[in-house]
Amino acid sequence: MSILKLKAYIAAVKFGSLTKAAEALDYTQPSISHMIHSLEDDYGFSLLIRSKSGVTPTDNGAELLPIMQDIVNRYEHLSEAVYAIHGLDIGTVRLGAYTSVCVHWMPSLLKEFREQFPKIEIHLFEGNSDEIHNWLEEGHIDFAISTIQRSEEFHFLPLVEDRMMAILPRNHPLSKNDTVPIEVFAEERCIIPYEDTHKDVQRIFKKAKVKPNVAYQIRGDEAIIAMVKKGLGISLLSELLITDHFQDMAHLPLAPDHVRTLGITTKTEIKSLSPASRTFIPFLQQWLKKWFYYICWGIKTIHVVTFRKNECFPPTSAALFLSTLGGKKGLLHTCFSAGVLVISFNIDLCEKWRKKAQFHQFLYT
């Protein structure tokens, strides 16, 4: 069996074109066509329907496609395992992730990973919940960073908790509250994401038996945030998604509190993943632990010391931390020095702040 023939067929189905498959695999179009014809001769039936508009799989081809994909994946795992035995970190990781993870984690994470493992390629696929589910099911990605999918179908390794927040225009009457009752969404004009993009939002409403008063239903996160800023309604998104917008709109936790858990989602057990993937996942776990977080309790003040190895404290994280601990109310002193942030607060509200701080400790420890 030729792995190249299987790759040629898989690429042809993926792109719907022999020419695009050839470009992706760095072969000529006649070579791709010859490999697929050879595969059809081996099997004794057609695998592709060829037309002027492109190619599509036959029923038999569609039935064999996931098996072919699994064979190719296992062959790549075998190659990586051989390299690993020789002490070489070589391979490919196909990773799916939500937009919030791609925007806020991946740039720094992938930069650091590439510096340490330059011969491991990362193929990043950005998608919503349904897309990630399908990619996992069809074997297009090795694993995903997502919220938990259907538990009976996939394995899930929790990483962090991401708090769900009500977002409101800055001048909204509710913006002065400490929390927003979930029932408010049945009364206020709401800008709600589609279920295929944010299943966690819909899950919260269903659990609370609240039917939101939908004024607009939008697929894009940035569009939702922009509409909230313009006063067109309120919405519900995760804290990771709105980190860069804390100064432009009000953001309050729900009552009762809700979080989504982000983690590693796989179709097989993690120990069955490729060596490259099993190198990346522990690296990700350690990367998330690079935030150090300390609370020092004084007689009249609370001092928070936090830093990240070899990096200055990001302004967005500073804003997040201040909002987590109740904004600037009670703030006595802020000091940046050598990448270390020290924030001192009046201790009068420390119990309230401590509860909030503990909830967000995953961001720093």
Rank of each mutant, 00 (worst) to 15 (best):
P253C: 07
R114D: 04
K329F: 11
D200N: 04
E131T: 05
E188W: 03
T365Y: 03
Y216H: 14
K300F: 11
L168S: 00
I90C: 06
T28G: 15
K229S: 05
A357P: 00
Q29Y: 03
A357T: 04
T58D: 00
P212G: 04
P315F: 07
M68P: 00
V55A: 05
E112Y: 01
A22Q: 14
K52C: 02
I49D: 09
G220V: 02
K176H: 13
E188S: 12
A223N: 10
R278C: 13
R74N: 06
F113N: 09
A338L: 13
K356T: 06
A8K: 08
G44Y: 09
F246Q: 10
I234Y: 06
S33M: 01
L349R: 13
R219P: 02
R260Y: 05
F113R: 07
E183Y: 01
K290N: 14
A223V: 12
G298L: 08
W105C: 01
S274I: 09
E80S: 03
E137W: 01
G339N: 09
M164F: 01
M1I: 09
R219S: 11
L254D: 01
F313R: 01
P181K: 05
Q286A: 15
E153L: 14
E195T: 00
R354Y: 15
Q358V: 11
F292K: 15
H172W: 02
G220W: 02
H172Y: 14
A144P: 02
S2P: 13
F45T: 02
S146F: 05
V93S: 02
L124S: 00
F125V: 11
E137N: 03
L39T: 07
N134C: 00
M249Q: 09
H104W: 00
P253R: 07
S51H: 15
D221V: 06
I141A: 00
K290P: 03
I85V: 02
F185I: 08
L159W: 04
P118L: 12
H86D: 12
